[in-house]
Design a protein around this nucleic acid. Structure first.
Length: 576
RNA sequence: GAGCCGGUAGCUCAGUCGGUAGAGCAACGGCCUUUUAAGCCGUGGGUCCCGGGUUCGACUCCCGGCCGGCUCACCA
């Protein structure tokens, strides 16, 4: 087995007095920094180019071509043209971009137009001569092409990949042999040498010194297909990150998303705070909690289902604008849009109402589009082009319900329960007779309205019975001043003008207890200390929660929450 | 929790009608000093997810289980 062979190499290195896991390697550059220094982004410049096709391979449903000129210089091309043959010359028209660091003619099509560029000219304009600069870099060896007395490979770090070139005469007999004998694909290595460009024009380190930094005892996943098995990708995310550039990209984007949200909030004068994850009362949302136990205090605690009630205590305490980004835990099903622990941002602003929150949310989205998506406001989500650029559609909850069912607010709030059950049954809601009125309305809404909400939409003015923490609507006592932002059929944000009347809040909690008795396991719990806090006076306040995982799904254009959570919840592996 | 689909070499995948398993990459040996899905010659590698059953014989058919994916239910 490969593993034993590699373990033997480690032992042998130790016998030779070489540490296979050294403590330190001094680097001068991250790999992408070198590329940035000697490569310019062609930004999609259109060119017409005549060149010979050297090789054709398949890439994500398209053809990836290596194009070459007489001198051997190369660039890549991505095309959907079918009848190309290696060795033939063609004239292509396309947009110049960088694809994994290499100059690439994207969307290349065959054309009759006269060429307006040569590979040499393009290279000269965008790929610069590094003039033998000395660098010291480290990374994982992800490709290895030994050729007798020389060898090529690629070193990869988080953001970049660079070719290395080893020559026996330059490296010396002994060290060349060492590499051949002890360095394997997958190892982490450090190299020192001079930068140059090969005949094809690829930026390359001509290696003068090479050091093994960490041995990889397992063979790497296959270089062309990466790792496809989703189970392995989630359980061994490190392999996914090593082998699949797409996965690296998604989590870099998520990290950027979080950073930009924080930046925006702080720039808007919000204070980042942390409230308890372990809570004696699980409230602030409709969900079943995880229970844990504190040994010293000898008491059960809940993992929070929401930070809401604590954040509002801070508004009472005099912090006018607070936000918290953190994990919530809900003891419920696992599927493509639900993970038992998930990341939320909640924020509260004194003297705001839900209208202010809507405007603010639009500005936040605009900021995220400008930064994370670099101005590209459209994303592909579940086969739809979703435009994340504000302003967003605004639609009233009961207007949407009426449009879809023909029944108005009066029906839903005051018709005999049997009639709602009947409607719910017609719409295919399961076990409607077991549901309370509030749950029935909620289900019917989800059934008829949410499937329509692909483009971003604020659904506003929810029924009061669905919103125990929201303030009564100033124009209609049946409603509350609340909105949900729905995008791609997912609830992405939920916000309201906060209820700050302690007596009213107490009554609403009692109603929740009533709901709980009626069989709704997710109804909220009474939090008496929160009531006491409100009794000291909470200013009029707007509060909002944004689901970060779902936002990341949208921005990444993936339809599974597990694609945007590094280590999603999984059952343990059997047999381990 | 229910239904459907899947689990074969380190990875990506074939495997016909039930006759004890193949390819590419990776690995190993050899050749090769500008290659890049390098190339050429050769070699090794399997708990066919696990446990039963049917059968002369099971990767294949049947039953049970484990893990995963999708759909539904629940939820954000």
């Amino acid at each position: 087995m490969e593993r034993e062979l590699r373990e033997k190499k480690v032992e042998k290195l130790r016998e030779l007095g070489i540490n296979p896991y050294p403590h330190k390697f001094e680097t001068t550059h991250e790999i992408h920094k070198i590329r940035e220094k000697y490569e310019r982004d062609p930004e999609g410049e259109e060119v017409v180019l005549r060149a010979k096709v050297k090789r054709i391979s398949n890439y994500e449903g398209k053809k990836l071509l290596r194009l070459t000129d007489e001198s051997g210089l190369e660039i890549l091309a991505l095309t959907e043209e079918q009848d190309l043959k290696p060795g033939q010359e063609y004239t292509f028209k396309g947009r110049l971009i960088r694809h994994e660091g290499k100059l690439t003619l994207a969307d290349a099509v065959l054309t009759e137009e006269p060429p307006d560029a040569t590979i040499a000219e393009i290279k000269k304009a965008y790929d610069f001569d590094p003039k033998g600069e000395r660098v010291s870099i480290a990374g994982r060896l992800v490709a290895w092409r030994p050729m007798g007395k020389a060898a090529f490979g690629h070193l990869q770090d988080l953001l970049g990949k660079i070719q290395i070139y080893l020559r026996k005469d330059l490296l010396g007999e002994e060290r060349f042999k060492f590499v051949k004998e002890f360095v394997d694909l997958g190892d982490v290595v450090g190299v020192k040498g001079k930068l140059f460009r090969t005949q094809t024009g690829e930026l390359t380190v001509e290696v003068e010194e090479i050091e093994l930094l960490s041995k990889c005892l397992h063979p790497l996943p296959e270089k062309w297909h990466g790792i496809r098995d989703v189970e392995v990708r989630y359980r061994q995310r490190y392999l996914d990150l090593i082998a699949n550039p797409e996965a690296r990209k998604i989590f870099l984007m998520r990290s950027r998303l979080l950073a930009e949200i924080r930046r925006f909030m702080v720039d808007e004068g919000f204070l980042e705070v942390e409230t308890p994850v372990l809570q004696p009362v699980a409230s602030g949302a409709n969900a079943r909690p995880f229970v844990t136990h504190h040994n010293y205090l000898d008491m059960d605690l809940y993992l929070r289902i929401a930070p809401e009630l604590y954040l509002k205590r801070l508004i009472v305490g005099g912090y006018p604008k607070v936000f918290e980004i953190g994990k919530n835990f809900r003891n419920e099903g696992v599927d493509t849009t639900h993970n038992p622990e998930f990341t939320m941002m909640e924020f509260y602003a004194a003297y705001w109402d839900y209208r202010d929150l809507m405007k603010f949310t639009e500005r936040l989205f605009q900021h995220l589009v400008d930064t994370v998506l670099e101005g590209k406001g459209e994303v592909e989500f579940e086969g739809h082009r979703v435009n994340l650029r504000p302003p967003f559609r605004v639609v009233r909850y009961f207007d949407l319900l009426e449009e879809k069912t023909g029944k108005g607010k009066e029906f839903f709030l005051r018709a005999p329960l049997e009639e709602l059950v009947k409607l719910a049954t017609e719409l295919g809601v399961k076990k409607p007779e077991a549901l309370t009125r509030a749950k029935l309305i909620d289900k019917i809404f989800e059934k008829v309205a949410e499937p329509e909400l692909v483009q971003p939409a604020f659904v506003i003015d929810f029924p009061k019975i669905l919103s125990p923490l929201a303030k009564e609507h100033r124009e209609d006592p049946d409603l509350v001043e609340r909105f949900e932002l729905v995008v791609g059929r997912m609830e992405v944000a939920n916000a309201y003008t906060e209820l700050n009347d302690p007596k009213e809040q107490y009554r609403r909690f009692l109603e929740q207890l009533e709901e709980k008795r009626a069989g709704d396991e997710e109804a909220m719990e009474m939090d008496l200390d929160f009531i006491r806090a409100l009794e000291y006076g909470m200013p009029p306040t707007g509060g909002e929660g944004i689901g970060i995982d779902r936002l990341a799904m949208l921005f990444a254009g993936v339809n599974s929450i597990r694609e945007v959570i590094l280590f999603p919840a999984m059952r343990p592996e059997s047999g381990e």
